[in-house]
Design a protein around this nucleic acid. Structure first.
Lengths: 209, 209
DNA sequence: CCCGCTATTGGCGTATCCGCCAATAGGGAA
DNA sequence: TTCCCTATTGGCGGATACGCCAATAGCGGG
């Protein structure tokens, strides 16, 4: 008989019902035990060392510090932590940032139970499970260029209805430079004008509602 | 002893984990029983008459037909159905449409268990529970004017980067008329230009990712 | 029947936008 | 060091956008 260690889990999600569902689902699964549940990032960082779970299931949309920031800090303080992102966001920016920040996997909440369990086991085995739909997106849009920090900043101002001159003033650069950034933004997002650039920004997760 | 009838529930949600969580949570609650769970709108419409649940918990983001359309069709065919929207969308457009379409309540998924249970009971009692955060939003933004169907159509084209002339051509109206619509859109959304109008459209739920 | 809202169009003019060409400077990778 | 990317700025000009004023027509409610 193969003695498989019980996998100890921590859940970080601000939806009580979702946590309850996960706890129930995974608690019943042989070989899994949920040792801790929290509903925000700060608490997660505090609690983690007390339990040192094998795998942490982390949502992105949290109150206060979001899941991506929580991920980064968690990995800074505890590089040995294994984190599986479990979120409803399919935005490529979220996926990209999560993976870049060292997530051990990324799956969406509409994943079936069996696949969820499999993903957790894969994380334990040292793999990096990526949901199908997500993987497909990454492949499709993977070649698209990403915006520089400055460009994201400019896009955020465009979103608020500022003119190029306004943006120049706000960022303390010339109107011409603001235009150059916007030009580059539109090229990268394949947008015909600033309005479409904003739309693409939302679609990609660069801009949040 | 007050003989309270057991409340029979139907769950419509495309997240397996969420369904499991709800089923578990509500199944354990005295006086509640989950008689059916489905993951899409079409099935919900087919199955409903077979169970005739007292209350249907309906999510908005579903594969294929979305929750709002499901709600409309459900109420057309079975006006006696009581539907409590249970979704993660806080977009005012979703709330507005749901209530207009006859939803018996609207609460978000980050609702606590006790409040969820209370909301279901309130629906049974003939009330129309609205989540706190949602109610607050409705009060705040309630006075803002809503877009006409034509304006929503135009906004959808603006989002895609079309110029006013393009929009005129596509809708078979003059460029001047397209401009007039956009002018009215910007006024209603309090946007300084088309880019901000698009952003506001996303924030309100008029535009979907 | 009158009122209000929606959809439609026109003229006129200024404000902004966006493209094309070109150039400098600094940081990081190879 | 060389090369590339990012950030920065300039000139020039045609294309679009947006504001203000005004007007017609249809539709549904009171």
């Amino acid at each position: 008989m193969t003695t498989t260690q019980t996998i100890r889990l921590m859940l970080v999600d601000d939806h009580p019902v979702m946590r309850a569902g996960l706890a129930n689902l995974l608690g019943l699964e042989p070989g899994f035990t949920v040792v801790s549940q929290v509903d925000d990032g700060e608490t997660a960082l505090q609690i983690w060392p007390q339990y040192r779970p094998d795998v942490t299931l982390l949502d992105i949309s949290l109150q206060g510090m979001d899941g991506l920031e929580t991920l980064q800090r968690l990995r800074e303080k505890f590089p040995e932590a294994r984190v599986l992102m479990l979120t409803s966001s399919e935005a490529q920016e979220d996926v990209r940032l999560a993976l870049k920040s060292g997530a051990n996997g990324y799956i969406t909440k509409n994943t079936r139970r069996a696949e969820l369990v499999a993903a957790i086991r894969e994380v334990m085995a040292g793999g990096q499970p990526i949901g199908e739909a997500i993987a497909r997106r990454l492949a499709e849009e993977g070649d698209s260029k990403q915006l520089s920090p400055r460009e994201v900043e400019v896009l955020g101002l465009v979103r608020q209805g500022f003119t190029n001159a306004d943006i120049g003033r706000l960022l303390d650069i010339s109107e011409r430079t603001a235009r150059a950034h916007l030009g580059s933004i539109m090229a990268k997002l394949q947008a015909a004008d600033r309005a479409e650039a904003v739309a693409r920004g939302f679609e990609r997760g660069l801009l949040k509602i």
